[in-house]
Design a protein around this nucleic acid. Structure first.
Lengths: 148, 148
DNA sequence: CCGATATCTTTCCGAACGCAAGCATTTAGC
DNA sequence: GCTAAATGCTTGCGTTCGGAAAGATATCGG
């Protein structure tokens, strides 16, 4: 007798591995972004001033602060991200989304949306997709600032 | 207007990052296994003869064959996994689950079950957890041999 | 039977990550 | 006002992963 919660967790982990495999390749070859790069930029997209601190981004992405530093470096050199200091707190180094970055993540989002539709193309009703999104939203709701 | 399927995918990716962060640490410090190590051994657990080929494992875990080779190496040295040749096909090198491995993955499973329950502890009804597991099962159903 | 192709596995190389340590700055206690 | 603790960011080191290449074996077509 297997617990339902355990079953749900295992399937969620397996499903993520499947989706990452499906999305990663095209996202990288077409837009030059990794999946985590895209999530980072989408968080910036919906941030108040198109900017977030690095620790804030780390919490939202569930990665270490050092990873954020390393992730933003190449994107900054490509002109997709910028750096901004805080007037009050000299420790903060905000990551900002540039106009170039907005265009790139906009295009990448279209790719993600198209491939997302493909995932549910067969044997899925609109109400079921919505139910899944809703239930997953309750999991991520415990985290700082849900995405989308 | 954001697509529901896109919303579901983004939330699934975020939820996975959250779960991996929650589970990874204790799983590693207590049992010496990574999350992927555990999934690999659980796949072996339910295999017909407690054994699977490396490419088969790679497909089930959605990782490259080289990753399976590297993952199994230390677990083999620790006596949790074994190696078995095929009588008909000399190319195959089955990964087998030893008695030691069965005990270890059994203990790790208990940890995973306990922490899985914690995830849904608050604000979740039994019917909702089951609905989530069911919907996720339809995603992984497209893959070779669903787990659990 | 034999060559061409396909499959299974491993190794090498570069990329990405977490952790611990370190530096700079801010905040809190006295 | 000054020291101690806390916070934000970066760097070095070890670990893990995917892709390409290589070697071994199997299968297929003639």
């Amino acid at each position: 007798m297997t617990q339902t919660s355990f079953l749900a967790v295992i399937r969620l982990l397996s499903a993520q591995a499947l989706l990452e495999q499906k999305f990663s390749q095209e996202l990288g070859s077409v837009h030059g972004l990794s999946l985590n790069d895209s999530l980072l930029m989408m968080h910036l997209e919906q941030a108040p001033l198109l900017r977030l601190s690095r620790v804030d981004l780390a919490k939202r992405l569930c990665v270490s602060p050092s990873t954020v530093t390393r992730m933003t470096l190449p994107l900054e050199k490509l002109g997709m991200l910028g750096r901004e200091a805080d007037v009050r707190d000299a420790r903060l180094a905000y990551v900002t989304l540039t106009d170039t970055g907005r265009k790139v993540i906009g295009a990448a989002r279209q790719t993600l949306e198209r491939k997302s539709k493909e995932v549910f193309k067969d044997r899925w009703g609109a109400d079921e997709i919505e139910a899944l999104a809703d239930l997953l939203g309750r999991l991520t709701a415990s985290q700082p600032n849900d995405l989308v």
